[in-house]
Design a protein around this nucleic acid. Structure first.
Length: 428
RNA sequence: GGAGAGGUGGCUGAGUGGUCGAAAGCGCUCCCCUGCUAAGGGAGUAAGGGUUAAAAGCCCUUCGAGGGUUCGAAUCCCUCCCUCUCCGCCA
């Protein structure tokens, strides 16, 4: 959420910033809502103040044994009027809140202008894509070849956009997760955290998935309103909701491994082959909760932590900064890590690292006590995949493939694979 | 699933219809005293919002959430959520 005060005092500036995303802020509607709110709120509070005064007088009169009936008569009409106006205000406030919750975050000045993915800008790249002296297969064919990746089995028990892994491949997937989590905890100073995979609506509103992006979520049937998490960002970042953090505890750095569930509504026909885009996938997520002045540096640091995973896996990748039109609603700035996939001969997103500034913090009520002012102030939140495990598996399979269809195990993962060096094809 | 207890400020915890946003203690901040240390004394210390260019001031809201009763609710009534204890069941 944006600062309501900023909207009141610097509307034009907000309108222009959001226009960079292609977002049109209806300033006429906002102006009307805000004007009405102001008038009504002043009125309601005035009425309440009056009522409180009268009630106090009645209390005093009663205590001193006077007749309070005349005072009661006098106050009669006040209550009804107040009730009516208060209800009006409540409705108006709800409308205004809805409007505010629907606004995306302000973009960082450094975010390049653009409309789509096409306009994202490469910041740097690492490694060189492997050159094969044979036709490279994609992970679907490789998985079928080793007999350990089965989409038909998944369709049988669930449907499209699910996968079943078996044997060494399933273990390799798990090895990736263990490796990444260990790196972040042992090398990068994150606290490992285990969190619920089902969350309530308030948490999703806190991180910005609701109210606007509910279509991407799976809601769970039952007495209580639960949603499957689309990313660990939701339960992890919401750890600080409605709280005031002590400055000495900052920054908070969490690393979590969770499955993620996405309906992928609106992506029909996109990445239908293989496990690039699934309803369920595993991810190791990094979250940092920092002082406002530290968030830009933390963003670079967090991105670097994700990059180190790819470096240790010796996977070629590039870092792009998302353009104004492609940056997610909650983010002020986002770096995507794109890993080279020989099967597609393309760089594909494997991590997304965002600085949300105070956008989520304001929704969550996540604050810290600034020693300089002694006052509670909003924190900054950041999150990034470090990295998506399913796609990392795809990348390893395709980049480490050999002519006979076998797959080498990256060195750093071998300890997690009981020393296994190659996943070979079944005999016969 | 059954039975009970409870949710109050950073924390502990009092408060059962009228200056209660809330006693007391702890913690924290500032000041004083004491040649260090220890101890002592005093003052202050919730959050959100409105009004304002901003501040001061003033006002409103908040004692788990939502409704209700009342001139007036932390206190009374209803519904829900959460936590804890015991029993049962269970990975």
């Amino acid at each position: 959420m944006l600062d309501p005060k900023l909207l009141r005092t610097g509307l034009e500036q907000v309108v222009q910033n959001l226009a960079r995303r292609g977002f049109v802020l209806d300033s006429g509607r906002y102006g009307r809502l805000e004007n009405d709110r102001k008038a009504l709120q002043v009125k309601v509070e005035q009425l309440r103040s009056e009522r409180n005064d009268r009630s106090r007088m009645i209390g005093k009169a009663k205590a001193s044994g006077k007749d309070i009936q005349p005072l009661l008569d006098e106050v009669q009409s006040l209550g009804d009027n107040l009730k009516l106006r208060a209800a009006e205000l409540e409705q108006l406030q709800a409308e205004l809140d809805g409007f505010l919750l629907g606004l995306p975050n302000l973009l960082d000045e450094s975010v390049p202008q653009g409309n789509s993915e096409e306009d994202n800008q490469e910041v740097r790249s690492w490694g060189t894509p492997p050159v094969f002296d044979f036709p490279a297969l994609d992970h679907v064919d490789l998985g079928a070849g080793i007999g350990e990746l089965d989409f038909e089995a998944a369709a049988l028990v669930a449907g499209a956009r699910f996968s079943v892994m078996r044997g060494s491949l399933a273990r390799l997937h798990r090895a990736l997760i263990q490796f990444m989590l260990n790196e972040h905890v042992e090398q990068h100073g994150y606290e490992e955290i285990y969190v619920p995979y089902l969350v309530n609506a308030a948490a999703l509103e806190g991180t910005g998935q609701l109210p606007k992006f509910g279509d991407d979520l799976f809601a769970v049937k039952g007495d209580q309103e639960f949603y499957l998490i689309p990313t660990a960002e939701v339960p992890v970042t919401n750890q600080v909701r409605d709280s005031i953090q002590s400055p000495e505890d900052l920054p908070l750095k969490f690393a979590a491994h969770t499955p993620c569930f996405r309906s992928e509504a609106g992506s029909y026909g996109k990445d239908t082959r293989g496990m690039i885009r699934q309803h369920q996938f595993e991810k190791v997520e990094l979250v940092q909760i920092v002082r406002p002045e530290d968030s830009a540096a933390a963003h670079e640091e967090l991105t670097d932590h994700a990059e180190r995973i790819l470096q240790k896996l010796k996977l070629a990748y590039r870092v792009v900064v998302l353009c104004s039109g492609d940056t997610g609603a909650g983010a002020a700035k986002t770096y995507d890590l794109e890993v080279w996939l020989p099967g597609q001969e393309k760089y594909r997103e494997i991590s997304s690292c965002s600085n949300c500034r105070d956008f989520q913090a304001r929704r969550m009520g996540a604050r810290w006590r600034n020693p300089a002012t002694g006052k509670p102030e909003l924190l900054h939140t950041l999150n990034g995949s470090g990295v998506a495990a399913g796609r990392a598996l795809v990348a390893v399979m395709e980049n480490y493939q050999q002519q006979d269809g076998s797959i080498r195990i990256p060195e750093v993962l071998q300890p997690y694979m009981n020393g296994l060096e190659v996943i070979s094809l079944p005999k016969g």
